[in-house]
């Protein structure tokens, strides 16, 4: 490597390192904030400084905020965490299944009405979500589903974006000859889908499951509109209330935020390769 290439490589590493530090600083701030005592909270921005090992005042750290999240019944934090897990898992699994089945039908069957359904799916991609807030709320109200999980979950189970993604994935990953061969061997349509088609598009399944799970986990406006009983609130709505009521109890707020984002982070780090492949696959051809 010549000198110029070496310099430019060092510059690239330096710039990226600085940008990564800036990106990760808010996370470090969050983690430190979640464990600092009330007294030590504003003594330093990250860890409280003091006479302990490494120049840190370890006595300024505490698990009280985390403990209070789960022990203070007025916060209902544990229930909200379970609600989020339930809401995001059910939404993720059902929306993914629904989208995979729809995408399969559009990609690998020739039937009357296929062009019309495909056009509807593509048309729906350009409808911005806020347009559906008022009429969607009126509909859920008319169906008698306000303040129920069904009213929250059902409207999210028909993702046009997902059907489109799966249609593209199936066109690439599921060879028609293979389907015909399996049918000749007497494989039924349902078994064919679950045992041959789905395993062939595993990367897209993983990516879309994660996309819908994270979307539901982070969704605020949906549950905020549809749900009324605090015992059904997911974390996003519950935390907004904690911020409103306990807005100056920063340790508690940071602990609640940390617990709220950890599951998503862990899931993402486990599945990141598939996630990023799925995210860009629909776009890059365009």
């Amino acid at each position: 490597m010549n000198l110029r290439a070496r310099m430019s490589s060092a510059l690239a590493h330096g710039l990226l390192g600085a940008a990564a530090l800036l990106t990760l600083a808010p996370f470090a701030y969050l983690v430190c904030g979640a464990f600092k005592t009330r007294d030590a909270f504003f003594s330093a921005h990250f860890l409280p400084r003091g006479a302990g090992a490494l120049g840190v005042d370890w006595g300024g750290l505490t698990l009280d905020h985390l403990a209070r999240l789960f022990s203070d019944p007025s916060l209902r934090f544990g229930a909200s965490l379970l609600n989020s897990v339930f809401y995001a898992s059910v939404s993720g699994v059902l929306a993914t299944l629904c989208a995979a089945m729809g995408g399969y039908a559009l990609a690998r069957f020739a039937f009357r009405g296929r062009a019309a359904v495909t056009a509807l799916v593509l048309g729906a991609l350009i409808v911005p979500a806020p347009l559906l807030l008022a009429p969607g709320y009126a509909l859920v109200h008319r169906l008698g589903l306000l303040d129920t999980f069904a009213g929250l979950i059902l409207p999210g189970l028909a993702p046009a974006f997902g059907v489109y993604l799966f249609r593209q994935a199936m066109l690439n990953a599921v060879p028609p000859d293979l389907l015909e061969a399996a049918r000749m061997d007497g494989c039924g349509e349902v078994r064919l889908f679950f045992e041959i088609v789905l395993p062939l598009c595993r990367p897209m399944l993983g990516a879309f499951l994660l996309i819908t799970f994270i979307g539901a986990w982070n969704n605020f406006i949906g549950p905020q509109i549809i749900l009324q009983s605090p015992e059904r609130f997911p974390l996003a709505v519950a935390l907004a209330q904690v911020k409103g009521i306990y807005g100056t109890d920063y340790g508690l707020l940071m602990a609640g935020t940390l617990v709220s984002i950890l599951p998503v982070m862990a899931l993402f780090i486990g599945l990141q390769r598939e996630f990023i492949a799925g995210l860009t696959s629909g776009a890059v051809k365009g």
């Binding site: 089945m101 729809g102 349902v190």
Partner: peptide, 22 residues
Amino acid sequence: PWIFLAPFVVLFGVFMVFPLVS
């Protein structure tokens, strides 16, 4: 194909097309 499309088409019709029109 309609077996596979049915869940999507029904939910899409009820929770997307209907609110959009209404």
